[in-house]
Structures are given as C-alpha cells and as structure tokens.
Write a protein that binds this DNA or RNA. Structure first.
Lengths: 108, 108
DNA sequence: GCCATATATAAGCGATGACTTATGTATGGT
DNA sequence: ACCATACATAAGTCATCGCTTATATATGGC
C-alpha cells in the first residue's frame, strides 16, 4: 500500500516537534549547527540528525563557511505541502482560486 | 522541548501513508469502516486505529447509522495546517495577503 | 433471547524513531 | 605538523508505531 509519495518525507519530517522547532528557529534566519545546538537542549548529533532529515525533505539548505555549516530555510520546500492541501480543494470551494494563484506564483 | 503544540497531532496523523490514503479515500465521500476495510489491504482493526488517529487530530468526523459507523472529512480539520503555513508567511511575501483571506474565511 | 454483522479495544510483536556517547572528518590557527 | 573547533556518522538503547490476532461491545433481524 505505501508507495512512497512526494509528501512522504515532508510530512514525516514535520511530524517531530523538535524538528518543527528547529525549522521555526531557522525561519528567524540562517544559523550554524553550533548556534542551534546552543538554543536547544539536545546534543549536537541530535541537531545534525534533525537537520539532515529536514534537508532530506527539501525543507532546508546548507552552506559551508569555514568550519561552520549554515542552514537556512528552503522556501520552495513547503510547496509539496501546499500541493497536498490544494488537492483537497473540494472541501473549501471558495478558496480554491486563491490557492491556485498561490501555486502558480510559487512555480516561478 | 516538546510541549504539545496544536499542530502536533495533525502532523503526526498525516505522517503515515496509510492514514493519508484513508483520508484521501474519505474525501471521495463519507464511508463506513467496512467499506474502507474492503478498499485497503489492511485489517479492520488497523483501519479503525487509523481512523481513530485521524479523528484525534480533528481531521475526520464519525456518525453512527445502525450497525455502521460512517466517517467523513472534517473540513475545518486542516485549518491548523494552514495556520502553520501562514506562520511562515515571511518566506512568500507576495502570497501572505491571499493566505490571510483564506484564513479569515475559514474562521466562519 | 439468540445469532450474525459492524466496529472498537486489548495484547503482543517486529520495525522504526529519537535520542545518547563515541568516533570520524574537515577546516583554521599557530 | 599539531591542536582545537565544527560538524557528521556509527553504534547502541529505549520508547513509540503500525500492524496482527483475539476478544469485547453495539446494533439489527429473527
């Protein structure tokens, strides 16, 4: 039954509260792993693993600068989520048009 | 770290592919547990457990009719998801206004 | 009341997940 | 070259998940 859908990794990535917190933190701006480790009460490897999951889901990017690796939100990453929501357009008929416009704009 | 957020149950509910498939199936229309069990290749208890999780997340309703229990999508259930998305408005500035309108309309 | 159907709950099991500590790999400074 | 810092990966542990089978709880028809 479970043929891996495109939403699979993103939903699973966001299912974990720590990961959502990390993501939330990154929306405040790019941050290196050591900064993130300082902000949260989990070990550095745990942070790296979470970031890896977020990256695998396409939700974040990374960039190396010297010894630091800076992570930042990948704006296009949440598109699968929007797509998934749009698929259930039938349940909010009035809003479909707006969602469609949103999707069009995100394509570019 | 993990103080149970409002998005918690909904993200976790949607993290499972079988559960998303069930939800998808319900968007085609209300269905009883035995129908859903027939559609998928998992046991009836598994279906009931998934439906319970979806219900716990506010994504579906149920209604009893005789011996059957019919489940249907709760349209307001995806609002937390929209809310969560809206929170990251900063990343798609052009779309914020539209998302806001969408949210306003869902409130009623 | 009795039996069949429909669903929910219980109990158990193997797989996966989220962490930990320990170690490996880059990079920079001296 | 050496050492410290920054990050990733490995390995192990404990909890949670998704499933199963077995059983309990409706409801309806006779």
């Amino acid at each position: 039954m479970p043929t891996t859908a495109p939403q699979d990794r993103i939903f699973q990535a966001l299912a974990d509260p720590s990961r959502r917190a990390l993501f939330e933190s990154l929306t405040r701006g790019e941050a290196a792993v050591n900064e993130l480790t300082a902000r949260f009460d989990i070990s550095q490897p745990a942070v790296s693993q979470h970031l890896s999951a977020l990256r695998g889901a396409g939700l974040v990017n990374r960039r190396r600068d010297g010894r630091h690796v800076y992570y930042r939100v990948e704006p296009s990453g949440i598109k699968p989520l929007i797509d998934w929501l749009a698929h259930y357009r039938a349940f909010w008929p009035q809003h479909v048009a707006r969602l469609d416009q949103l999707l069009e704009r995100m394509d570019k």
